[in-house]
Design a protein around this nucleic acid. Structure first.
Lengths: 240, 240
DNA sequence: CGATTTGTTGAGCAATGTCAACCCGAGTGG
DNA sequence: CCACTCGGGTTGACATTGCTCAACAAATCG
């Protein structure tokens, strides 16, 4: 067949082709990437990169959920970011990896050696532009989260978190009636939610129970959540 | 005189010429910027940009200190970043300003209209690369701060903050004996420190008093701090 | 069916926020 | 020159939130 077909073989069946960084590349650019990219599966709990190690890889998430974790010496850990399909990870032009990346579920990645990826960026300003915009968006999000971590009460944090997760699940689209009850599975355990929100497992659990008792949500299973009253949830997310 | 001289007139006496984004530009690039740039003075307390407004300006800090503040409806506010001389602010390719920028002291800026600055970036990939690296560094810093805000105790936060400020002041270089006592002025009031660290004025004040009573620091004036025992301070910054 | 992980619930406590009083220094105006 | 005010800072008493420790329930997995 024609070269483009061969070259885009990996990307052809890419689940996130239109949403990932690569999405807005033309065929020529895609070809450059394709020569470098490699599929990789990681099991839940497996680390993709370790904080402090030389940053030699970067890439896109194809499926699954991963966490970016800032962990000091002792047991305490803080999840400083979550990676979903179509998200980019790694640090082009960075030296050492800053945060350990661990798969929360089985996941599939499209990885590139950093050096090669940097050369692609050198040659493809549009791609670098997209990366800049994504980085800026991540920065925005991180700063928003600083406000949440530092100033919100446990109730606000949990309510806000559920709304975020609902919005994300809603994208995948199974809300019967807009405004009506929406059910979805959390990709995180209680402990991981606690690590994201800067609280303890127990407090997360208690807040969820409170919301359940108030009729705002239902908890059909350990991982499943039903939003019964999105307005009430939003009110809780803002309340002082 | 020759064109370059005229064109670099603004930059010629720029206090942060070598450290700012522009620092690594060649004459031609500098010329492009110079045509756009404009000096601007802001008084302490004055806002430079408002969250939610269209982002029409960006630029460099020449002197002074500014805060990036995430403020929800009620009184609570969180400083999500500080801007020092040579730092870049603004959001090329962004839509709305995300965080209000307020001068903490009288400050001097070098501002560019966003649209024009974006065109400069279009034409000068090296500059865009630098901006990308700076944005990535800011992201790194914001995520580090998430760990601080979410997981550190009041004592750790204050000790760590003092070390950060000392390092910054040390750059400006007045430490007699390395490891010996270092005295400097905080650019922030207690209230602003509290806003950075996600605590209250009272708690900041109490922690400072504790450190003073322990002989770890001295407080010669309301704004002045002397680090008497950097090792002890570092220990506090890490301790559980 | 045990073992292990995850989640829930309760009781007590410690850290930190809240409220309030007070101090100090810098302006300001009489 | 002095009294006043105002913003910033300190300190104390008290309330509250959320963490710690502990027990138990539920789900998952071999």
């Amino acid at each position: 067949m024609t070269p483009p077909l061969t070259c885009t073989a990996i990307c052809a069946d890419c689940a996130v082709r239109d949403r990932a960084l690569c999405g807005s590349l033309d065929d020529r650019e895609l070809r450059a990437l394709n020569a470098l990219g490699q599929r990789r599966r990681v099991a839940a709990g497996q680390a993709v990169a370790w904080a402090g190690d030389e940053a030699i890889l970067c890439g896109n998430i194809l499926s699954g959920t991963l966490k970016l974790v800032a962990g000091p010496a002792d047991g305490r850990e803080q999840i400083v970011g979550l990676l979903y399909p179509a998200d980019f990870f790694g640090q082009p032009f960075g030296g050492q990896t800053d945060f350990t990346i661990v798969a929360l579920s089985d996941a599939e990645l499209c990885v590139f050696p950093r050096a090669g990826f940097e050369r692609v960026l050198d040659d493809h300003p549009r791609m670098e532009r997209l990366l800049l915009e994504r980085t800026a968006a991540s920065l925005r999000e991180a700063r928003r989260q600083m406000l949440v971590l530092a100033r919100q009460s446990a109730a606000e944090k949990v309510a806000g978190f559920l709304l975020d997760m609902a919005a994300r699940a809603g994208d995948g689209g199974c809300c019967a009636v807009p405004g009506g009850p929406l059910t979805f599975d959390l990709p995180l355990t209680r402990g991981q939610i606690a690590d994201v929100l800067g609280m303890t497992i127990e407090t997360v659990s208690r807040q969820l129970t409170r919301l359940k008792n108030a009729g705002t949500i239902a908890l059909p299973g350990p991982r499943a959540v039903t939003i019964r009253d999105a307005a009430a949830l939003a009110a809780r997310a803002e309340a002082a």
